[in-house]
C-alpha cells in the first residue's frame, strides 16, 4: 500500500455521501425551451385556429361562427376569387421551384461532388445570395430588371438579344415567373448544399465497386448516386413546399408590395393573409378572416406534409451507408 492510499483510507469514514441524482434536472433542462416554444409558437398557432371559428361584431366582441369564415373564404366571391388566385399562384411558385431550382441545385451539387479545383470557392460563392435579406434581393433585382436603369436590357442587347427584354416584373403574364426565378436565384444554394452533403456521404468504396462493375461517370450518377440520394431529394421537395408558403411573402412584399400586382398576378397566400389581417386601402383589417387565411395555409401545408410523409417518404428507401 502506498502512502497516498493509506491517506485516502483514513479519510473515507468522514466522506460526504451524496445521493444519486433524481429527476429535477430533467425538468430544469427542458422547461425553458418548452415554455418559450409553447407560448410563442404553439399557443399562437392553436389560438389562430380558434379565432378562425369566430367573427367580430361592431362592438368589438367575438361571436362563434363555426366554419362560417371558411365558407366565406372558399365560396363567397368577395373572398374566394382572391383566395383561389393566391393558392393557385402559390402552387405555380412551387412548381417553378421544383422544375428549376431543385434540378439546378442537383446539377451544381453533382458537379461539385466531382471535386473540381476551386470547388470550395464555387460552393461558398454560390451560397452568397441565400444569406441576403429578401428585401435586399428584391430591390437589387428590381433595379436590375428596371427599364429605367436598363442593366438587364443593356446586357441582352450586348449579346444581340435586346428584343427579348420586357419589364417582366410589371407584366401580368410574366411577373409571377420573374419573381419565382428571383427566388430560385436566391435559394438554389440550399438544395445544392443538402444534395452535395448527401452525395459526399456515399462511400468511395461503392463508387469504386461501380467502376469495377464497368459503369462510367454518367451511369454511376444515374444508377448509383441518384437512387441513394432520393431521400434527400424528398426532403428538398418538402422544404421547398413549406418555404413557398412562408418566406415567399417577404420577396413579393419587397418587390411588388402587398397587393401582388399587377392585378393580383403575384398575390400569394402570405400577402393575402397580411392584407386580410391588417387591411389595405379600402379594405378594413379583420383578425378573424386573417386567422382563417392563416389556418387555411396551415391545412394546405399539412396536406403537403402528409402527402410527403405517407406517399413519398415511405417509398424512398433509406439505405444504410
Amino acid at each position: 500500500m502506498t502512502d497516498a492510499t493509506t491517506q485516502m483510507a483514513d479519510r473515507r469514514p468522514t466522506r460526504r455521501r451524496r445521493r444519486r441524482a433524481g429527476t429535477a434536472h430533467i425538468v430544469v433542462f427542458l422547461a425553458p425551451a418548452l415554455l418559450i416554444y409553447t407560448i410563442f409558437s404553439i399557443y399562437p398557432l392553436v389560438e389562430s385556429l380558434r379565432l378562425s371559428l369566430f367573427d367580430g361584431l361592431d362592438d368589438g366582441s367575438a361571436v362563434w361562427t363555426g366554419l362560417g369564415n371558411y365558407a366565406r373564404l372558399l365560396f363567397d366571391s368577395n373572398w374566394s376569387v382572391r383566395f383561389w388566385n393566391a393558392l393557385w399562384n402559390n402552387l405555380i411558385l412551387f412548381f417553378i421551384h421544383m422544375v428549376v431550382q431543385n434540378p439546378l441545385g442537383l446539377l451544381l451539387a453533382a458537379l461539385l461532388s466531382l471535386a473540381p479545383r476551386f470547388g470550395g470557392a464555387y460552393r461558398t460563392l454560390i451560397f452568397v445570395p441565400t444569406l441576403l435579406s429578401v428585401v435586399i434581393v428584391g430591390f437589387v433585382w428590381e433595379l436590375i430588371l428596371s427599364p429605367l436603369w436598363g442593366v438587364a436590357e443593356g446586357m441582352l442587347s450586348a449579346v444581340g438579344l435586346g428584343f427579348l427584354y420586357a419589364p417582366w416584373l410589371g407584366l401580368e403574364d410574366s411577373a409571377l415567373t420573374a419573381v419565382s426565378l428571383i427566388s430560385v436565384w436566391q435559394y438554389v444554394g440550399i438544395p445544392m448544399m443538402l444534395i452535395y452533403a448527401a452525395l459526399l456521404s456515399i462511400p468511395d468504396e461503392l463508387l469504386d465497386a461501380a467502376r469495377v462493375d464497368g459503369l462510367s461517370g454518367w451511369w454511376i450518377f444515374w444508377k448509383v448516386k441518384l437512387p441513394l440520394i432520393l431521400p434527400t431529394l424528398g426532403i428538398v421537395a418538402i422544404l421547398t413546399y413549406i418555404g413557398n408558403f412562408t418566406s415567399a411573402f417577404d420577396l413579393i412584399y419587397s418587390i411588388q408590395g402587398v397587393l401582388g400586382p399587377p392585378d393580383y398576378s403575384t398575390d400569394i397566400m402570405g400577402t393575402l393573409m397580411f392584407r386580410t389581417f391588417f387591411g389595405q386601402q379600402t379594405q378594413i383589417g379583420d383578425i378573424y378572416m386573417g386567422a382563417t387565411v392563416a389556418s387555411m395555409m396551415f391545412f394546405v401545408i399539412l396536406v403537403g406534409v402528409t402527402i410527403y410523409l405517407v406517399g413519398v417518404q415511405r417509398r424512398l428507401t433509406r439505405y444504410e451507408m
Binding site: 398557432l45 392553436v46 383578425i287
Partner: peptide, 13 residues
C-alpha cells in the same frame, strides 16, 4: 409548421 401562421395570435399576445 411555420411560426408565421400564428401571427394573428402572436400580435394579440
Amino acid at each position: 409548421v411555420p411560426i408565421r401562421l400564428g401571427t394573428v395570435a402572436i400580435l394579440q399576445l
